[in-house]
Structures are given as C-alpha cells and as structure tokens.
Computed example of a mutant assay.
Amino acid sequence: MELNDKLTELYKFKQEKDRHIGRLVSKTQRFVREIASDFLQEKGYTNFRVGHMVALIHTDLQGSNINNLAHLAGVTKQAMSKLVKELQDEGFVTIEKHPNDARTLIVKLSEKGIDTMLDWKECTQKIEMTFTDVIGQEKLEQLIDLLSKITSYYETNNACMSDKAVLNLNLANAIPVKY
C-alpha cells in the first residue's frame, strides 16, 4: 500500500473516532464514575472511592475471604487486602478470623457497609435514570442486554484478555475519583 493510500485510510479512520467502540465504552465508563462520584459526595461519603465497590459488591452477606474476593474482582490478593484494610479503617467492613483456619480472614459488611451498599443501589438507579433520559428505557435495556452478553462471553471464554490485562483493568477502576 502506498503512503498516500495509507494516509487516506488513516484520515477516514480518524474521522470516525467518535464511533469507535473502545472510545465509547471508555467515555461512558468515565461518565458513570463521575455521576457515581457526585452522588456519593452528595450522600456525604468523603473518604470513599468508587473503586472500593470492587470489594463491597463481592462481599457475601455471610462474609467472604480475601482470596475469594480477589478472584471475583479479578485483582491480586495484595490489592484486595489493601482495599479491605481501607474499608475496615473507615468502618465499612469488619474482619474476623475463620473459625476453622486462623490464617484465613473473613470480611463482613458492617452496618455502615450495608448502608453504603443500599446507597450504591440508589446510585445505580440514578445512573440508569440519567441514561434513560438520554436514550429511553427500551434502548437502555437493550444496551444492558448487549453489554451483558459481551462481558459474559469474554468472562466465560477468558478470550482476548490476559490475566494481567484483566488485573490492570480492575486496578484502574480502583483509582480514586474526584471529589
């Protein structure tokens, strides 16, 4: 391919940049994080990051060990331990020793953690209402169904992403949000 042909092709590609799936998903994720951050700030959460939800959302009501939380969240045990420690320091979770294995810690939601999860439920509803205002309920349901199919496929088949890429993606989601 000649240089002029390559430049023409590149020009056409760049003209469509606002319709590239990666860019759209990334920008949408940023909007979701901004809406969530603003919502949490309005609720009075000052020392809490949207990334903390990675740990809280996967914590079973009966409690979870750090290894399972790390696996479910797709992060290292060390990263999850750090998140859990931050959540414990702020009173969102409690830590207990496993009754049958003193080396294993069990993470449980505290009352503050339960309240936070209920606030998060309200936050996700607000995000969905915001998007419904833009595209309508039916299209939002279609979007959720389509994204669910895509994520399910790649999670089930572990296709396309190395463990390191998944880890980096999840750690990027744990970056503090603006307040």
Rank of each mutant, 00 (worst) to 15 (best):
D18P: 04
V93H: 00
D119N: 05
Q78L: 09
F31C: 11
K85H: 06
A102E: 15
Q88Y: 11
N65A: 01
T151H: 13
M117N: 07
E128V: 06
T156M: 08
D133P: 09
I35S: 05
G113Y: 00
G113N: 01
M53W: 05
R23Q: 09
M80G: 02
V54G: 01
D18C: 04
D133G: 14
K27L: 13
D145N: 14
K6Y: 14
L146V: 04
L105R: 06
I95K: 06
T46I: 04
E141N: 14
L87C: 02
E138N: 09
E9M: 10
N65I: 06
E9S: 15
K82R: 13
A36G: 09
K14E: 15
D119G: 02
I21H: 10
L140S: 01
K14G: 11
E16W: 04
H71T: 14
D60A: 14
M129I: 05
K126N: 13
A79T: 12
K121N: 08
E90V: 11
R33F: 00
I95P: 00
N68P: 00
D101V: 03
I175R: 09
N170D: 04
R30H: 10
M129P: 01
Y153G: 05
I106C: 03
C160D: 15
T46S: 15
T28A: 06
T104Q: 08
D145L: 06
H71C: 13
K77R: 12
I175S: 11
A172H: 05
A174C: 09
H58W: 09
S152P: 02
